[in-house]
């Protein structure tokens, strides 16, 4: 499936603020270390992501891009950017 949430591992500073706010608890810190020396946040269970974008809203480093499936009716759809 298409990814719902994309983390840029090189941008991440490993602060873990996204981890705490994910309602599905699917964000975890990777084992590997990025070029800046941080363990970046990541998601593997993409199918469980609801696209709520709470993680992106708390991320201080613009690591996260969130996608949602196209809806038949766009009415009521509220983008994370408001």
């Amino acid at each position: 499936m298409d990814k719902r949430v994309v983390f840029d591992p090189e941008r991440c500073k490993g602060c873990e603020l996204c981890v705490d706010v994910c309602p599905e608890s699917i964000i975890f810190m990777a084992e590997e270390i990025n070029q800046r020396g941080f363990r970046p946040a990541t998601v593997t269970e993409q199918e469980r992501c609801t696209g709520c974008a709470l993680c992106a809203r708390m991320c201080p480093d613009l690591v996260i891009t969130v996608y949602r499936p196209e809806r038949r009716s766009a009415a009521g759809a509220r983008e994370g950017r408001g």
């Binding site: 941008r11 500073k13 873990e16 201080p60 996608y67 949602r68 950017r81």
Partner: peptide, 26 residues
Amino acid sequence: MRVAFKRPDALVDMPTHYCPGCTHGI
């Protein structure tokens, strides 16, 4: 899929110097 959340264009696409977890970025 449509983008639900991304970096605003009014910010330059570059990493900041702020410390991990500093809310300046927000």
